[in-house]
């Protein structure tokens, strides 16, 4: 009996060792759910070309940060960027991959997408419960000639901790002093009013089912569900629509050169047609790689994705980074070194 048990354990060990050896041509990552579709799409195409497998677990940005700090994955992914100081204390290097936009969506019977114009401070007032009805004089001011309905506003937010909420509340903090001091920005906050839906689809469902509701979702959800979105006021004072072009404009005008450690929220960027609630999603890697070959594998994958992945990103409603930013990122990879102190990416 004991012998059989021993044999079984022995066999299990051998099998384990074999899977370990087989996994040598594989890289692993974990983190944000927002970019997971495009990372998986890239991984599929990359595997077909190079035989290298990418195993990406979409466990959420917070989980991604924890996993890379614990060194259980080759890279972490997060929608909530770490500032340079946090990166350095944990010995991490961060760089962006793709850009996405967040869109306020509404349920106003009879209204078409883009018929309502909103400013950042108005959005903050709605979300803190100061503007309670759609025919509020404050809203009428930016919507001359539009007959706003006498409907109560139902505020819908994300119930789960999310990089989307972080970006959205960061935008509200930037636009309104009261939001900054009373609520603040985080991946989950104490919402003054409203109800919470789980995930983008939960928010979209509540908005669709509640006349007078307003919510915020990633662009892909607004586009695929053809929801009524609002035009937002950009930095120049123009009211613009959420489109791939306006997210691209926000990413192109961003001052990546002066952002230490690529810590940058693409909120309220200057320049024509730059969507004000835009953000990048990021990759975290250890600055000092224990295994230089593994570190190189990871960077090779992202280099490949920057070169060949733009079409896939477009198809999935993400916005690829501008070429000059990609060059800056490749240069920044010199900070990622192997045990010998030499950069792993050549």
């Amino acid at each position: 009996m004991l012998k059989t048990l021993g044999a079984a354990i022995g066999a299990a060990l051998i099998v384990g060792a074999e899977t370990q050896a087989f996994a040598a041509g594989a890289i692993s990552g974990a983190g944000a759910t927002f970019p997971a579709p495009v990372y998986n799409k890239w991984a599929e195409a990359y595997k077909a070309q190079t035989q290298t497998t990418l195993n990406y677990q979409a466990i959420g940005s917070g989980g991604g940060i924890k996993q890379i700090e614990a060194n259980t994955v080759d890279f972490g992914a997060t929608d909530k960027p770490l500032n340079l100081q946090d990166q350095q204390t944990n010995g991490l290097v961060m760089f962006p991959t793709v850009v996405g936009g967040i869109v306020p969506v509404m349920n106003l019977p009879g209204f078409k997408p883009g018929q309502i114009k909103l400013t950042g401070p108005q959005l903050a007032d709605i979300y803190r419960g100061a503007i309670k009805k759609w025919d509020d004089p404050l809203l009428a001011k930016t919507n001359p000639g539009v007959k706003l309905p006498n409907l109560p506003i139902t505020v819908v937010h994300r119930s789960d901790g999310s990089g989307t909420t972080f970006l959205f509340t960061s935008f509200l903090s930037l636009q309104a002093e009261h939001w900054k001091s009373e609520v603040g920005a985080n991946d989950s906050v104490q919402w003054p009013v409203g109800l919470g839906g789980k995930g983008n689809d939960g928010v979209a469902a509540f908005v669709k089912q509640t006349p007078g509701a307003i919510g915020y979702v990633e662009y892909i959800f607004a586009a695929q569900n053809s929801m009524t979105y609002a035009l937002m006021q950009d930095k120049a004072g123009q009211f613009i629509a959420p489109t791939a072009a306006s997210f691209k404009a926000a990413a192109a005008n961003a001052k990546w050169t002066t952002a230490p450690g690529f810590y940058l929220l693409l909120l309220d960027q200057p320049g024509a047609n730059a969507w004000p609630i835009t953000g990048a999603t990021f990759i975290l890697m250890h600055a000092k790689q224990a295994d230089a070959a593994k570190g190189e594998e990871v960077l090779k994958f992202f280099d490949w994705a920057y070169k060949n992945g733009d079409a896939d990103a477009d198809k999935l409603f993400y916005v690829p980074l501008p070429a000059n930013v990609k060059d800056m990122i490749r240069k920044s990879w010199s900070k990622i070194v192997g045990p010998d102190g030499k950069p792993v990416y050549k």
Binding site: I59, G60, S61, G62, G63, I65, K66, K80, S159, D160, G161, S162, G163, D187, S188, G194, L195, G196, K198
Partner: peptide
């Protein structure tokens, strides 16, 4: 009225609690 339960709160926030 909207509410929450213990289990739903944990499910909502645990992954992103940093």
């Amino acid at each position: 009225d909207s509410g929450s339960t213990i289990a739903s709160t944990i499910a909502n926030e645990f992954t992103e609690a940093t």
